[in-house]
């Protein structure tokens, strides 16, 4: 493989060069998979629209169309690649793919990825990438394996930054949850992360907490400083003294 375009590769020490190459190879395989899936989904959409148009034209009843795009093939390929990279950090990329692109019928695949990440990769320095992709898994009702993954990362990962990322992502997920108990836990977790010494993590937690701490009924509205559509600068607080209806809108 020709990698001379990569400064990382050129500067890498003997021995690390293989790792870099392996990582780039995995990244390329991952990106190709994303590309194929995007194309596949687009094709599926096109065919569905065509079938509907055809039926309308011929005054036939509308055809039954699958509600979810055909993700199975791509998830299968992701698992094959994950197997090739089993036990290596690079496998996380492919499990991350499964977590991100799984549809409503892919709960089993997602569960498999969650369990593998928990067993093989919880202590990896790159596990943080996968932790931000758990929203779909949560929607699929996989709360338990998700929480096990978080717990394992927080207990076993040697990096304080990765542990903090796990707490941040767990807090965000819980805060967005259905139950009041989850919301409360998420709030507490994010408040704890917001007090951490790691400035980047603390700021991310603050941001996630913003709707709770600043946008509730009874809060003073955060000021908005910006430009109107004609380019004239103004502030929301310029309208103090008036009752303001603030409307996020568009013509579309």
């Amino acid at each position: 493989m020709l990698l001379s375009f990569s400064p990382t590769f050129v500067l890498a020490q003997e021995g690390e060069a293989g790792d870099v190459e392996r990582r780039q190879e995995a990244q390329a395989a991952h990106d190709a998979l994303v590309k194929d899936l995007t194309k596949g989904v687009r094709e599926w959409q096109r065919k569905a629209q065509q079938a509907v148009a055809e039926a309308r034209k011929n005054n036939k009843p509308l055809p039954a169309i699958a509600m979810t795009p055909p993700t199975e093939e791509y998830l299968g390929r992701a698992f094959d690649l994950a197997k090739e990279h089993a036990g290596e950090d690079t496998a996380i990329l492919f499990h991350g793919f499964v977590l991100k692109y799984a549809g409503s019928k892919d709960a089993e695949s997602v569960k498999k990825s969650l369990v593998t990440l928990t067993l093989d990769h919880a202590a990896s320095p790159t596990i943080g990438d996968a932790l931000g992709r758990l929203g779909a898994a949560m929607q699929l009702g996989l709360r338990e394996p998700i929480m096990e993954l978080f717990t394992e990362v927080i207990d076993t990962n040697p990096s304080a930054a990765v542990k903090g990322t796990a707490m941040l992502e767990r807090g965000k997920l819980l805060l967005a949850g259905e139950s009041e108990a989850d919301k409360k836990k998420g709030l507490q977790e994010l408040e704890a992360v917001a007090k951490m010494a790691d400035k980047k993590l603390a700021a991310a937690a603050e941001k996630a907490l913003f709707p709770i701490t600043r946008l509730q009924v009874g809060c003073e509205a955060p000021d908005i400083v910006g430009k109107d559509v004609d380019g004239v600068a103004f502030k929301l607080s310029d309208y103090r003294g008036k009752a303001v209806l603030l409307d996020f809108w568009g013509f579309w």
């Binding site: 946008l215 929301l236 008036k242 603030l246 409307d247 996020f248």
Partner: peptide
Amino acid sequence: NSPRISEDWHVQGWPTLYYIDHKGIIRHK
């Protein structure tokens, strides 16, 4: 704006409405 105002305010659907009183307090959403 970076981030967009709607992103800053975590707007999840349009239209989103805030009712802010003359003292700047959010009264209704």
